[in-house]
Computed example of a mutant assay.
Amino acid sequence: MTTEVELAVTGLVTRRSAHDVAETISAIHAEAERRGATVVAVVDHAASARKAGLTMPETQVIIFGNPRAGTALMQASPDIAIDLPLRVMVRDDGHPGSLVSWQDPAYVLQRYGLGEDQGTPLNVPAAVATAVLDGR
């Protein structure tokens, strides 16, 4: 079962996964590729912290995109390139499962002054995460 989680961070949508960070990242990776996206990287912040002699809860960010979709956004608003490729964060908050977060597409559109008709590519993280979290 997944539920939406209330967070004070503006512009993020967060839901709970019943699975741990590694399992959730793996499922998101497979779903993103199934939808035609290229996974650029998985950044494992906790592993990097361990290499530096520090500790933090498991936290990974998967970065993926599709140039056919992202290029039009960057042509319309070049500054949006700082937010592309798209990403989903999965982290351990000390409770069963993990938290899955992505940028709210409406927030990103507003931030860059883009119209709703341009937002389809920004819906991909939500679609990928929702498919994984709802078992579709």
Rank of each mutant, 00 (worst) to 15 (best):
L133E: 05
E33C: 07
S17A: 13
G94W: 06
D20R: 05
H19K: 13
I63G: 05
H29Y: 15
A81D: 06
A127S: 09
M56E: 12
Q75M: 13
P96N: 12
L109C: 11
R91W: 11
R15H: 11
A46G: 01
V9L: 11
G119C: 11
F64Y: 12
L114G: 02
G36K: 04
L133D: 04
K51D: 12
A41V: 11
A8Q: 08
T130R: 06
D83I: 09
T120P: 00
T55I: 02
A127Y: 00
F64L: 07
M74A: 13
R111V: 00
I25G: 02
S17L: 07
L109K: 10
A69M: 13
A37Q: 14
S77L: 05
H95R: 15
S101Y: 02
G113P: 13
T55E: 12
S48T: 05
L86I: 08
D20C: 05
S48R: 09
A72Y: 10
V5W: 12
D93H: 09
A46T: 00
V88Q: 01
P85K: 02
A126T: 00
P78D: 07
V90I: 13
V43T: 07
V9P: 00
A72R: 15
L86S: 08
H95G: 12
I25V: 15
A32K: 03
V108L: 15
T24P: 01
A8W: 00
T2F: 02
L133G: 03
E31H: 08
Y112M: 06
H45V: 06
V40K: 03
A46K: 00
D104F: 00
A106V: 09
E6S: 10
L84R: 05
R136W: 07
S48M: 10
V13A: 14
L7K: 08
V5A: 11
V108Y: 08
L7I: 14
A18R: 09
G97L: 09
P57M: 01
Y107L: 06
H45D: 03
V124C: 00
D117R: 04
G70Q: 00
V5E: 14
A41Q: 13
R91L: 13
A81R: 10
A18Y: 00
L114M: 14
A32R: 03
A22H: 09
T2R: 09
I28H: 03
N66R: 13
P105R: 01
L133S: 06
G119S: 12
